[in-house]
Amino acid sequence: MDPQISLSVALCLIPAACCGIVEGLATGKAVEAVARQPEASGKITSMLMMGLALTEASSIYGFVIALIMLFS
């Protein structure tokens, strides 16, 4: 494989690492919120799911671009 392509695929997956850190932070905040206000856990869970999916989008874009570079 062309070394330039390998390098750029690796660079494309940096967002995945950042996304892991940020999702951990968000989940920690959600746990804090539930501990402070257990009666609001349903709303917090749905908001957390929504936010996590939106955050994950950035790493997914990187992943899709990496796939396109690798396999086509």
Partner: peptide, 13 residues
């Protein structure tokens, strides 16, 4: 585009 890529990327991964 972003919605399409999101669904596609998650399923493919």
């Amino acid at each position: 585009v972003s919605m399409a890529c999101r669904l596609f990327g998650n399923t493919v991964s």
